[in-house]
Simulated scan of single mutants.
Amino acid sequence: MTQDSVGLDRLDRAILRELLRDARISHVALGQRIGLSPTSCARRIKILEDAGIVAGHQAVLDPKRLGLSTTVIVRISLQSQADEALDAFERAIAACSCVARCLLMSGTDDYLVTVLARDIEDFEDIHRRQLSRLPGVARIQSSFAIREVINRPVPPSAVGA
């Protein structure tokens, strides 16, 4: 059983690949796919969860089927990068229900935010009533996604695919 620097062997990586494909797979089906008993699969999954490598299981929802057909990438710069300013902004953006993802960035923009909206008019309302009112915002730049090409929680290379 060879392990890499993260402590995962080939069976752990096989389990992770299968869980990425189908997080609801039964231990029996998982065992059949990777050549382990259901009990061994359950034990290994528990170890991966306890180590924080598997941080949870979630449903992947289709935004378009929920009426959210417009994805907007928003770059936000703050007036200050002081800890208090960053903390206030992060608390406020966490309360914005239209935000799917927010990343603190290096470089010219402080945050990269992904917003899901029904359409351009809906985003205009989100921009005016939510984003522009966030504390400490100095500049907002928005780009509309034309089409999603890839959306992975982790790249396949992370689990040896």
Rank of each mutant, 00 (worst) to 15 (best):
H127Q: 14
R152S: 07
R43L: 14
L66E: 13
A158S: 12
R10Y: 05
D110S: 06
V154C: 05
L36M: 13
L30F: 06
C98Y: 09
Q81I: 01
A95M: 11
S77Y: 03
G7H: 01
I93S: 03
L36T: 11
S69F: 01
R13V: 05
D83W: 08
L61P: 00
S37Q: 07
G35M: 03
G7C: 02
S69R: 13
H27W: 14
G160D: 08
T2N: 06
F144D: 00
G56W: 09
A100N: 12
A29T: 10
K46R: 15
A88P: 01
L16T: 04
T108C: 04
P63W: 03
A161V: 11
S157I: 09
E90G: 03
R21F: 09
C98A: 15
L36V: 12
R152M: 07
R43H: 15
V149Q: 10
L134P: 06
A55Q: 12
A23C: 06
I73M: 13
V54M: 03
A59K: 15
P38C: 07
A145Y: 08
C102M: 09
A100I: 08
R43W: 15
G56I: 10
I140E: 01
S132C: 09
V115K: 03
D110K: 04
I15V: 12
Q32F: 10
I25P: 07
L66V: 08
P135C: 03
R129I: 01
R21S: 08
L134C: 08
A100W: 04
D62S: 14
S37G: 15
K64D: 09
V74R: 06
D83C: 04
R17T: 11
L104H: 11
L116C: 02
A95L: 14
R33S: 10
S69Y: 02
V113Y: 01
L19R: 05
E90Y: 01
D83H: 13
R75L: 15
L20G: 04
E90F: 01
I126L: 05
C96L: 11
V28P: 00
S37N: 06
Q3H: 04
A138L: 14
L61H: 12
D119F: 01
F144T: 11
R91P: 04
P156G: 09
P63S: 05
R17D: 11
D4S: 03
K46A: 14
V54E: 08
I126M: 02
V154F: 13
R139E: 11
R17P: 04
I34L: 07
T108L: 13
L66H: 10
K46V: 00
Q81M: 09
G136E: 00
I15R: 03
A161G: 12
A138W: 05
M105Y: 00
L66A: 13
R33H: 11
I93W: 01
L30Q: 02
D110I: 00
V159E: 00
D62A: 11
N151W: 12
L19P: 05
V137S: 02
V60I: 14
I120P: 00
L116E: 15
V74H: 07
L66N: 11
D109M: 09
V149H: 09
